[in-house]
Simulated scan of single mutants.
Amino acid sequence: MSFDKITESDSKYNHLEQMSVSDLLLNINKEDQQVPLAVQKAIPQIEILVHKVVEQLKKGGRLFYIGAGTSGRLGVVDASECPPTFGVAYDKVIGLIAGGDTAIRMAVENAEDNETQAEIDLKAYQINSNDFVIGIAASGTTPYVLGGLQFCNNNQIPTGAITCNQGSPVALLAKYPIVVVVGPEFVTGSSRMKAGTAQKLVLNMISTATMIQLGHVKGNKMVDMKLSNHKLVNRAISMVMNELNVSLDKATQLIETYGNVRNAIKNYTK
C-alpha cells in the first residue's frame, strides 16, 4: 500500500548540530505551535469517535488504547490518569503497550512488529463488543496496532485510531479514525515530538469529553476524583466549602465522612 508518510519526511531544518541552543529552542517551539491547529482540523473526527466511546461505556463497556513506543506510553498515561481524576474503576480505561509494562520505561526489541500480540493482550481482558479500542500509531503502520484493530474488526468490536498520516493503513482500518497531520518533525522521523504532542492533545480531549458526558464532572469540578494525597484532599475541601457555603471545619468533616466531593455534597444537610 502506497501513501505519503509525512511523519518520516525530511525536516524543514538542516545542520541542527550547528544551531545555537537559542535557535534550537525557538525552531522547536515554532514547529510545536502548528500542532493544536492541526488538532483543530480533526475535531469533527474526534467528535464522532467520542460519541461512540460514550455509547459503549454507557453499555458497561471499556475503552482500550493500544500502541507501541511513544504512542503506547501516551495511551498508558491517559488510561492511568482516568481513575484518580474521574473516580472510575481502574479497568474502565486500559492502556496496552507492545512489549508489556517493561516497554513503558525502556524499548523492547521488535515488540511493535508482532502482528498477533495485541490480540493476545486484548483477549486477556475478555474483550467484547461492548468495548471500544483505539489504536495509536503516529506513522499509521505499526504491526502491533494493525493486528489488534483487525482482530477487533473481525469480532464486531468498534475501533478508532489516532495517527498522523492521511491514508495510512491504521487510518483505513479503524472504523473511527482521527488523523492529525502535523507535518515533518524537527528531527527527521522523531515522532515523539509533534506527532506525540498531537496524540497527547487528542487523548486529553477524548478521555475528558467522555468522562464529562458520563457525569464525572459537576460545573467544572472533578467531583469524583480519588483523594489520594493531601493536595487533592485540600482541593476537595475547598470545593465543598464553595459549593455548600460551609466552614472549613464542616467541609473537612463532610469529606472525612463521605470520602469524595460528590457524596459530601449529595449527603449534606443543614
Rank of each mutant, 00 (worst) to 15 (best):
K52D: 13
L203M: 02
R73A: 02
V217M: 09
G148L: 08
N130H: 15
T210I: 01
M193R: 03
K123I: 14
E47I: 15
L63P: 10
C82F: 09
A138I: 07
D78S: 13
L173R: 11
M1R: 12
M106W: 03
S80E: 12
Q199T: 02
Y144V: 07
Q199F: 04
A137Q: 10
V246K: 02
M211T: 04
S207D: 12
N114S: 12
D10H: 14
T163W: 03
V179F: 01
E17Y: 15
R62E: 04
I136R: 04
S71E: 01
A137V: 10
M1S: 06
M239R: 01
S238E: 14
L248Q: 06
S129Q: 15
L214N: 05
G95L: 13
D249Y: 07
H230M: 10
S9H: 07
T210V: 10
V54F: 09
L122G: 02
D249M: 13
N220D: 11
I157C: 10
V39I: 13
T188K: 08
A264K: 01
M205F: 03
K266G: 01
G183R: 00
L122E: 00
A98I: 13
G183A: 12
T163L: 06
E8Q: 15
R235M: 11
A107Q: 11
M222Q: 05
M19P: 05
M106S: 15
S191K: 06
L173C: 09
L49K: 07
I48P: 06
N153F: 09
M19Q: 15
G69Q: 09
Y268G: 01
A137K: 10
E47V: 15
D113F: 11
R73H: 09
E17M: 06
M1E: 07
Q166N: 13
E112L: 10
N260T: 08
E47T: 15
F151C: 13
F151D: 00
N27L: 06
L244S: 11
T188V: 04
L24P: 03
K194F: 01
